[in-house]
Amino acid sequence: MDDSQPLLSLQHLSRTFGGLVAVNDVSCEIYRGEIFGLIGPNGAGKTTLFNIMTGLIPPTQGQFFLQNQSLVGYQPDQISQRGIARTFQNIRLFRDLSVLDNVLIGRHIHIPVKLWPGILPLPKINNWERVARTEALDILNLLGLGARQSEKASHLAYGEQRRLEIARALAVRPQILLLDEPAAGMNPTEKQELCEFIRYIQQTFQLTIVLIEHHVPLVMGLCDRIAVLDFGQLIALGKPETVRQDAAVIAAYLGDQP
């Protein structure tokens, strides 16, 4: 694998909603193994960009490529199968299902069965289910949730629910994991623990991670490179120390933040 080539390439992506330009001609490249930050004021277009990259909405113009394959026009499940998974700013779990079942839902995207064969108790189906269960349990154990596998997702504490949502995304076997404001609602201690947790899953699962985050110290201390959006436009891209000193970024977003 040539790590000098971008894993994910965004080329002149734009998205409009009526007369509103949410994303405006954004281009950047993300490389294998990076932790890549996406920051900017509220309404800058960050989550819209995630929604484009995961197939929830199409771009008005432009392309995005995973390993040189254009994914424009692909459905969310097709993009997941090719290696892009995500979490959401507002936690989206199946709250009345067990912790284990929430992770199994992510894993089942790779089980190649249609409706009727899946209903019948065939040996091959049972074997796929056993493998999926084993892999889901392995992920839960690695993320410290193995002992809670039988509990309803709604019974978990807030930080544990965040980890469970990430566990479900990891069950997709992604190359790229998109995290949308993973520190939202966390106190300073939890944010520091989250920072260490993201590094842990990046190394353990050999991931490329792209995260949207408003907590500037977390982004600056965690990310290899940072892109800054303002009114849908890319106004800065580079290493944290470079972005922090960029006059346009200071004016649009950072201000006098530490």
Rank of each mutant, 00 (worst) to 15 (best):
F36V: 10
I39E: 07
Q11E: 12
G238W: 05
R82V: 04
G118D: 13
F36C: 14
K152V: 05
F50G: 01
A136F: 04
A85T: 10
Q61L: 10
Y158F: 15
F197Q: 03
L140G: 00
V210F: 07
K152R: 14
D230P: 02
L254I: 13
D77G: 11
L104S: 06
R225W: 04
G144H: 14
I119T: 07
A136R: 00
T134W: 10
Q203Y: 05
L137S: 02
G62N: 08
L177D: 01
A147P: 01
L100D: 01
V216R: 00
E193F: 09
L137R: 00
A132C: 13
L143Q: 08
D138T: 10
L38C: 07
L194S: 09
R107T: 02
R130H: 07
Q67F: 09
Q202N: 13
I91A: 08
R82I: 07
T189D: 15
V26S: 00
A171C: 13
E151C: 11
S14W: 03
F50R: 00
I139Y: 07
K239I: 11
T134V: 11
I139W: 03
Q192D: 12
A247D: 14
K114A: 12
E165W: 01
E213P: 08
A153F: 08
Q206Y: 04
Q78I: 13
L234C: 06
I35K: 01
R162D: 10
F88P: 06
P123G: 10
T16N: 13
Q5C: 13
N90C: 04
D224G: 11
V243Y: 04
F64Y: 04
Q11M: 12
R130K: 13
G18W: 05
V113S: 05
F231D: 02
F50V: 03
D246A: 09
Q206S: 08
I35N: 01
V249P: 00
V99H: 03
G221E: 05
T189E: 15
Q81N: 10
R163Y: 01
L115F: 12
A252N: 03
G83E: 00
P112I: 10
K124F: 09
L207V: 11
D2I: 04
V113E: 03
I125R: 02
E165L: 04
R130T: 06
K114R: 09
W116P: 04
D246H: 12
P59C: 05
P188Y: 09
L38S: 08
R95E: 14
K191Q: 14
V219E: 03
R173E: 15
G255R: 01
G18H: 05
I39V: 15
I212C: 05
I119A: 12
Y31L: 07
F65C: 11
A85E: 02
V249S: 02
S70W: 11
T16P: 06
L140M: 09
Q11V: 14
T204W: 04
G43K: 07
L142N: 06
H155D: 15
K239Q: 13
R199E: 07
G185Y: 09
E213V: 10
T208A: 12
D25T: 01
